[in-house]
Design a protein around this nucleic acid. Sequence first.
DNA 1: CTGCATCCATGCGGATACTG
DNA 2: CAGTATCCGCATGGATGCAG
Lengths: 123, 123
Amino acid sequence: MTDSLCIVHGESGPMIRSVLDRICDKWTLLIVSTLQRGRMRFTELQRNIPGVSQRMLSLTLRHLERDGLVVRTAYAEVPPRVEYALTDTGATLIEPALALASWAVTNGPTIEASRSSFDSRSS
Amino acid sequence: MTDSLCIVHGESGPMIRSVLDRICDKWTLLIVSTLQRGRMRFTELQRNIPGVSQRMLSLTLRHLERDGLVVRTAYAEVPPRVEYALTDTGATLIEPALALASWAVTNGPTIEASRSSFDSRSS
DNA sequence: CTGCATCCATGCGGATACTG
DNA sequence: CAGTATCCGCATGGATGCAG
């Protein structure tokens, strides 16, 4: 607890940054939490994640695959079929990510209230 | 557990996004974890966070203040003195943020190994 | 000491069109 | 079906200079 900042500071910094950058881009968390339901193919993912473009879905999946959080399986069929699934490592991400998400849901109203109040004060 | 994706999807989405965007910018986590040590003034923060520019420190602190995670106290002195401290809400952020950070530290090597392997395969 | 204003480079992400 | 390629607007963030 006391040395918590030692985790964020120090030589672990870059690692945390690179992971955080991955988590915090616009679609990663959405994709990972969707894949928690089970393996899914490209179009299925796109249907289940409203607003995502082909480009971003493709890019983000590629990133996740590169980081070993998602596995891509292509079947040599016509028409082509590709399925995505979480790896074991990918699955372990869900817990801490969800902890942060639920913090966001819990404190969201407080934060938004604070924003409104702040904005009206400085108007 | 089963309905975890219901938290991320659904109408909570925007709230999570706005919080995530705050957490994941380049300096917020660093500032919050630094302030965990206690109230601190501007220059002190700058010294304790290597690489941060005045602009970014100022901007990020303003955001945190707006969100009610940090309180700013200005003393009418010459020369002027300003101190920053975490609010109660701000302090509760540390725990889930640290959970994610420690996940990053734990899985960082695995991820980086996966990246190298992926990059060499597609070279 | 504190921190705003300005200029500028970079990169994320959206829209669209096209391929195997 | 499952992508890739291209263009383009916008926000992030660094450097520098100036002000209260």
